[in-house]
Write a protein that binds this DNA or RNA. Structure first.
Lengths: 203, 203, 203, 203
DNA sequence: AATGAATGAGGATTCATTCAT
DNA sequence: AATGAATGAATCCTCATTCAT
């Protein structure tokens, strides 16, 4: 499987891919029918089946694409850096970037009911999340060792809190129908918050 | 509509209610069929329709029940108290309590794909969440005024972070198949974390 | 079976009877559900079943009631009379009277798809119609013998034409949403028409 | 929408069309289920839905087909002609022809409970009938002007009487289970009747 | 690479009807 | 005389999927 060039709209496979992403993100996997996707793309159902084994495979590839993108982005940001705070800022910013660049996938992710996913896909997702969790934790531990952030904080919890706060904001913005899932100001506020909480700590 | 006495298992209506909650939480609203619910309860489909107008109404009442419970719990904890830290601790504990007392509803909530809910139900849910958000924010602002927590933190973000961290933990525990959605230890770690971050701040 | 006193509205049985007549006439037998009837009357379904064996019986009694009324009316008008034209006029008027007095039953009759009626009921209906046809024919034959109407007309066709014209008018009025199924003027026009056609004939 | 070639029995769409016509005419729209139609044709339910949006659309197309046929027949007969009596005869004959050529549709029409039809379809039907009524009336008026038929007759009533007599005969024949809905002899009798009533009038 | 036609299984919902009370 | 609760069978319709072309 090769990830489609998401901008090559002339490719039928990609058009199906994108249409599915948008529909799934708006109505949820189960509420979207093959027919709807095909109508949106303007092809017959057998055409979809020519490119994707079945509906579940389509979903799986969609998720895998999201993972691969987010993994790629993360990998770069996780490389050892001199200034942890800048690295942290970049990490926070990355989420915002992703939300801005692939809003459908972002909504898609949050809209996705992870507990109802087919087992195999779910496992893949959990694996991806655990990998990200582990990598982030390593980063935090290093920063605590070097004294850049409060060393008394439990790293796992730090992880949850940082990601959780971001996700909560995103959900909130989606729910209250903000146009931008995460604006520049949102990112700044977030950074200020963690500056107070974990960077600027009493020794 | 009156909320069913959730413990009166002899009542057919309640049995349908509970079965639906469990099934929805495990497989998601769309993946659960009326037939499945009825089979679980051991009644015919028309019986379900005798008690609930349709599938959507059943879902709506389920959600409303959850809201009412969580609202009731929150209301008590939001009453003015002398010691903010204890109040905060209780709030954190409440979530754990809810998760322990109504695990199905907790999973149900997290499993629920809010973006695919029928508009009317979604509105109700958003309203409930916004109310909780507002009330919590008031509490934080008061605590900042009295100097109990770091006054430099943005209250809205504080809200997102506190809730987000908890939710992230819960999701993590669900995903990694922890038996307890939020154990006593989890609560303790959480409290320690916020003690460091917002209570024990440099003046 | 005794025909209900159609004006005694305090009697539950009658109320069901009338409600059914109205609903059947508006929506057709098959499109009306027992529930609808009961809701209109304000009783539970078992109550309906207390009075009527089943839906088909209810329909049968409704039709039988209509037959009995129309038979009663006809019988009086068919009695030997001195002036045939007056008798004919009265017959025409009777249809108008019936339409005015029991509009629901009139609509009910025309709305009734006779070919889809249960066999037994249909037979009863056909029998009634054939009896009326025979009786009318006798009347026409007598009038032809006495020279009151054109003796060259085929009596059976005379029958069809007289009834057909009236029915066609009624259907037309129903279709074009006239308030009165057959107004006084309609009756007058009808009479003028037959005066020209069958009474005032060239010897 | 294009009307199916009603004789091309190899076409699935047409086979569904014809089966529906026959079933509807025998049992009425509401009493016929999609399943029955499909079983008669020997296809699965989705096949029917592939060709017809839903049950109501199927009915609508059936009615539209009938209208189009009857309209086509009428149009030819309404063209200005030298001899009105021959034209009238042809009109009467047309009904008989229709009844002979499309017996199912004839029964279908009479069996159809017009008051219970979906609003949109009913409107279409009323429109068609009103058009026919208007056109016929024009014809009668012209014949009265030229003195071919009794000018003292009310044209609208003439219309009702002519159509009504025919319909009444048809219904009678259907009810009494005549094999032929309108035999050659029936037509002849009808013509003789109107000869006496409207053509051969006292000046 | 794409399609028109077809399918079996299952979806939610409503029906007429009947108990026990 | 009336009802609340329950039912089996049927309703229309949509689903994901596949064949032959």
């Amino acid at each position: 499987m090769s990830f489609p060039d998401i901008n090559n709209e002339s490719d039928t496979r990609t058009r199906i891919f994108l249409a599915a992403a948008e529909l799934f993100s708006n109505y949820g996997y189960n509420r979207v029918s093959i027919r709807q996707i095909c109508e949106k793309v303007g092809v017959g159902k057998p055409t979809l089946y020519y490119y994707f084994q079945d509906k579940e495979t389509l979903l799986a590839e969609l998720l895998r694409f999201s993972f691969s993108v987010s993994r790629e982005m993360l990998r770069k940001l996780l490389e050892p850096a001199a200034n942890f705070r800048e690295q942290f800022k970049a990490l926070v910013g990355m989420r915002a970037l992703f939300a801005r660049k692939y809003p459908h996938f972002m909504r898609f992710f949050f809209g996705m009911n992870i507990f109802t996913l087919p087992e195999s896909i779910r496992e893949e997702m959990v694996e991806h999340l655990q990998w990200a969790h582990r990598e982030l934790e390593k980063l935090f531990v290093a920063a605590q060792r070097s004294g850049e952030i409060n060393p008394r904080l439990n790293p796992a919890l730090l992880n949850h809190a940082v990601l959780g706060a971001m996700n909560q904001m995103l959900i909130w913005n989606i729910l209250t129908d903000r146009k931008q899932l995460m604006s520049g100001n949102d990112g700044r506020l977030l950074m200020e918050f963690w500056d107070e909480c974990i960077f600027n700590y009493p020794h």
